[in-house]
């Protein structure tokens, strides 16, 4: 308890700490938001709750890391990871996901959980269980007497994440495929009647999701580090963010992503870093309670 109070005290004693915590939180949050956006897409369009979300992220990270080992510039790893994971997503869709769409919740959870374990173990067999990261040859910017540090690598990562998110949004709004995806999300039967090949839409959506995750992973390996079994942390956060923001609410997903990033950092500072993830899960619980209360009120109004 003393430690918690001491930590809160530090926040007021050194106000600049808040800037640092917020900066770190927003940078992490941006990447959470990207992965969560992919999940919102798959969940919203196909009603598949993808537990392998985080493992796609880690797989993308390994693609990029492996290329960097082979001497390719690490920044190139982001688009390549996008393309490779697109392929992985497509294959997985054809092999597994296409068979569980339309089945009950439990089937799709089990199937994607199986995929998650497979990916983690395959990565472990190929690359080993050591942690890996890419160190970019860029400097770090310092503000406030060197107290707030912003590695240029992180900045590049955030910019790439933002570009990726914008690209996807524009694509969903403007392109024919984007329109088809949105139509399928609204009502798959009506979409089929209108001549939309929903099977193709599903395959495309799932591949797009895993590609987005792959690119996010390629950014993460430049900024933090990856390990074959780290997928679950990104899966959990994606679920928290999508649940908090609601499906099909893109600004909400981004806001929730940034918010969770910042809140986690505050939680880590005040309660100790061991409770960082607890903060995210606690938040999920709160959101669910609020949602429940809201629904109850609505029902009462309806009655």
């Amino acid at each position: 308890m003393d430690q918690v109070l001491g930590n809160i005290d530090l926040l007021f004693q050194f106000p600049v700490v808040n800037v640092k915590i917020l900066m770190d939180g927003l940078m992490i949050g941006a990447l959470f938001a990207v992965a969560a956006y992919g999940l919102a897409l798959v969940w919203g369009v196909m009603n598949v709750k993808n537990l392998a979300q985080g493992d796609f992220v880690i797989a993308g990270g390994y693609v990029s890391w492996w290329l960097a080992q082979k001497g390719l510039p690490p920044l190139l790893g982001v688009p390549i990871a996008f393309i490779v994971l697109w392929g992985v997503g497509w294959v997985l869709y054809k092999l597994v996901i296409s068979r569980v769409i339309g089945r009950d919740l439990f089937t799709s959870l089990l199937a994607t959980f199986g995929i998650a374990i497979m990916i983690a173990q395959i990565l472990n067999l190929i690359f080993g269980s050591d942690t890996q990261s890419i160190k970019l040859p860029y400097d770090t910017l310092y503000f406030f007497d060197g107290f707030v540090d912003v590695p240029i690598a992180k900045l590049i990562g955030v910019i790439m994440a933002a570009t990726l998110a914008t690209g996807v949004v524009v694509f969903m709004k403007k392109s024919r495929m984007g329109q088809a995806i949105r139509a399928t999300a609204q009502d798959p039967r009506a979409a089929r009647v209108m001549g939309i090949d929903t099977e193709k839409v599903y395959a495309f959506t799932f591949s797009l999701n895993s590609a987005i995750c792959g690119a996010a992973g390629a950014i993460i390996v430049m900024v933090w580090l990856i390990q074959p079994f780290y997928g679950i942390t990104y899966s959990i956060r994606s679920f928290v963010i999508v649940t908090a923001a609601g499906l099909g609410n893109l600004p909400g997903v981004i806001a929730a992503g940034l918010g969770i990033g910042a809140l986690e950092q505050y939680g880590a500072h005040i309660f100790g870093i061991g409770y960082q993830q607890a903060v995210a899960v606690l938040l999920l619980l709160l959101v669910l309670l609020v949602r429940l209360a809201q629904q109850r009120r609505n029902r009462q109004v309806l009655q």
Binding site: N7, L10, Q13, F14, V17, K20, I21, D24, I28, F147, I220, W224, L225, I226, Q227, F229, Y230, I232, T233, Q265, A268, H269, G272, I273, G274, Q276, Q277
Partner: peptide, 18 residues
């Protein structure tokens, strides 16, 4: 205490700075 799936410990290092 560090979590099992640690990839960021800036919260602790900030305190080290202070």
């Amino acid at each position: 205490k560090l979590p099992r799936d640690l990839s960021d410990m800036s919260a602790i290092l900030t305190k080290v700075k202070l």
